[in-house]
Simulated scan of single mutants.
Amino acid sequence: MPEHPQHIAILRLSALGDVCNLVPTVRALQRRWPEARMTWIVGKAESALLEGLSGVELVVYDKSTGVKGMRALWRRFADTRFDVLLHMQQALRASVLSLGLKCDLRIGYDKARAKDWQHWFTQRQLKPHPKAHVLESFMDFARLLGVEDTHLDWSLPVPEAAFEEARALTGDAPYLVISPCANPRLRNFRNWSAEGYAAVIEHAWQRHGLKTVMSGGGSPQERDMGEQIRRLTPNVEIIDAIGRTSLKGLLALLDRARVVIAPDSGPVHMANALGTPTLGLYATTNPDRAAPYLWRDYVVNRYPDAVERYLQKSPGDVTWGTRVRHADAMALITLEDVVGHLDTLLADTAEPAARMESSDEG
């Protein structure tokens, strides 16, 4: 194990939420070895999110380039030898990519957490950590290297131009961000209903005076969801930012929000990284493993119910990380679940003066 690594390589290509959960590990490594050079091999979209991350050289590997892109990356590092490679991407493509990188030590997941035979491509594996949150699994790499100071620090860079982009959409009044859709993938099933979101938007406006900003990518599924929500809320001000922001602009939008509501997706982890109060909606994925880390106590958690109903098992009988791939699972989340958690989250994160006024009114 290197005591004073001079050059650390991180291999983690995707996804947006995961790279956000990885940043505290990067910061912990930087605190331990501030003079060490750090190179992070990352995906194209994820690089745009992380651009400007202090002390880190971001090197993009676009998986759509396939073998051609791999060879280009190998040529780029032909004369480079890393002291240690932290292989944090559990995918066969990433493992093959790692073979073209010269390093003294390759560290990967322990056999229980490894997927796609990743442990065959590494020399040292993490110590077992059953039922670890994704963020903690990443931090285990720093722990294995002997890092003791593991306090959480993100310090994600958000340029002023991004804040200007966000302000142009929202103005200065307080707002709620709803990012209604997870990444549109086959059998993902992480999205709640348009009717549910519409009712929450009505509640946030009438009860808390919060207008809503809808965010998301520009896919047809996301645009369609946004249109459905708007049709269901004709009397409430909604700012539709779906497909209208850059990734840095989205960071700024989330940073300025009073609260963010979203299913298990990139935005809940982006908001979490910024310290914005975050309400995650979880039924198909286990929030104990993948909730917004700082706001785990406020997650709407119907995962145990989904496991029992659609997998006919108890939560303790399924492997860690099991997903409930059923189209009706998110329907287990009720409006009462969401507005109740929202009211609690807003009360718990109110300014002290506002809390006192609310108490006096009660």
Rank of each mutant, 00 (worst) to 15 (best):
206 Q>C: 02
176 L>G: 07
83 D>G: 05
274 L>I: 06
236 V>T: 15
20 C>D: 05
315 P>G: 09
261 I>P: 00
274 L>D: 04
56 V>P: 06
242 I>W: 04
25 T>A: 14
111 K>P: 01
283 A>G: 10
340 G>C: 11
178 I>H: 01
169 L>W: 13
268 V>Q: 11
99 L>P: 03
341 H>W: 06
225 M>N: 12
262 A>T: 14
126 L>P: 00
42 V>T: 14
264 D>M: 02
249 G>K: 11
275 G>N: 13
223 R>W: 07
154 W>E: 04
168 A>R: 15
290 A>L: 10
200 V>F: 00
286 N>F: 06
101 L>R: 08
17 G>I: 13
176 L>E: 09
345 L>I: 08
176 L>R: 02
138 F>D: 03
1 M>I: 12
98 S>P: 04
265 S>H: 10
141 F>S: 08
326 H>F: 05
305 D>L: 15
339 V>I: 15
96 V>A: 06
23 V>I: 13
335 L>N: 11
337 D>G: 04
340 G>R: 07
45 A>W: 03
158 V>K: 00
70 M>E: 09
197 Y>I: 10
1 M>G: 10
345 L>S: 02
277 P>E: 03
91 A>Y: 08
302 R>M: 04
205 W>M: 11
12 R>M: 06
285 T>K: 01
79 D>S: 14
289 R>S: 12
308 E>M: 11
177 V>S: 02
241 A>V: 12
25 T>K: 01
43 G>E: 05
296 R>N: 04
327 A>H: 11
182 A>T: 06
339 V>D: 01
31 R>T: 07
166 A>R: 03
275 G>V: 12
46 E>K: 03
267 P>I: 09
128 P>Q: 03
127 K>R: 14
231 R>I: 00
262 A>M: 04
293 Y>K: 09
211 K>F: 09
47 S>K: 14
252 A>N: 05
184 P>L: 03
358 S>E: 14
361 E>M: 12
10 I>N: 10
274 L>G: 00
343 D>K: 08
79 D>Y: 08
20 C>P: 04
77 F>N: 08
78 A>E: 15
110 D>A: 09
34 P>F: 05
351 E>W: 05
358 S>V: 00
50 L>F: 05
286 N>Q: 11
